[in-house]
Amino acid sequence: MLQVVEFAANGLALGAIYALVSMAITVIWATSDVLDISSGAQATFAGVVAAAAGMPWGPVAGVVAGILTGATIAGVFQMFHLRGALKDPVPIILSTFAVLIMIESAILTVVGPEGVKLTVVAGVVEVGGAIILISSLVAVACATASLVVVALLLRFTPIGLNMRASAISEKSARLVGIAVRQTQTFAFVLGGVLVGIAGVVAAMLVGLSYSSPFSLTLAGLGGALLFGRKTPQAAFLGGMLIGLAETLGQAYLPSGWSAGTSSLVILLVLATSRNAAIAFSGARP
């Protein structure tokens, strides 16, 4: 029983990373209709920067790196918009995939094939006999705090209301005077902040390498899809569950099979969901 509690704690910590990436994907997609495949790469870049900077400034440097990559993707998005190339979503989505390849290659060139890790807090706490890493608690706390901030931002601030209006109808938002392009740019930057935090947490908890981006993106997408990717809260919950399922899979499935958890979730949700017909179709929440 204690072992299950420990696995669950590790799973929730891993889920915290995925939840942050899922929230970033959801916020960007809802506001701009772009499925950002590079989210995992941005998180990895942020984590690598954080690990290179070390403590005490590593986490700050990581989040700044996340913001910069988010702003870069926003720049690419705006260029596509200027050229009127957003009617077909595939080229812009493939561009985010190309950014993922660029970041993977940059990390492999600069850091090498070995992974990096950031030591923020060490030690363990004992809860009812179960031993839990303090870094796991920090990870869950970071993800939860991020969720609360994003939810409050969307609910109570003018930019949050603009984002929600743009998400419901871009045309109507523009008609009532909302600067939709700036709002979408802000969504990319907000996504950058979230993946920046995800990267710092991942560097602290599991370590990151050049091969991390794709698996992070996939887990993030799985989390964003699981409960319908309508709100950051749903994305948070989805990410947490993917992390939990993956950790329990690592513990109880034969070696290697847990790597398919995110894929299995995505496939099952899309193939069986009643709402599959509107999934990623351009129908915004």
């Binding site: 499925l35 979503p89 595939v90 989505i93 996939l218 997408l221 899809l225 398919g260 995110s262 894929s263 299995l264 995505i266 496939l267 899309l270 193939a271 599959a276 017909a277 509107i278 999934a279 990623f280 179709s281 351009g282």
Partner: peptide, 15 residues
């Protein structure tokens, strides 16, 4: 499924 969902589903299948 719509285009992007189909891409995701086939990606998951490939993995």
């Amino acid at each position: 499924l719509p285009e992007m969902s189909m891409a995701l589903a086939t990606l998951a299948l490939g993995l």
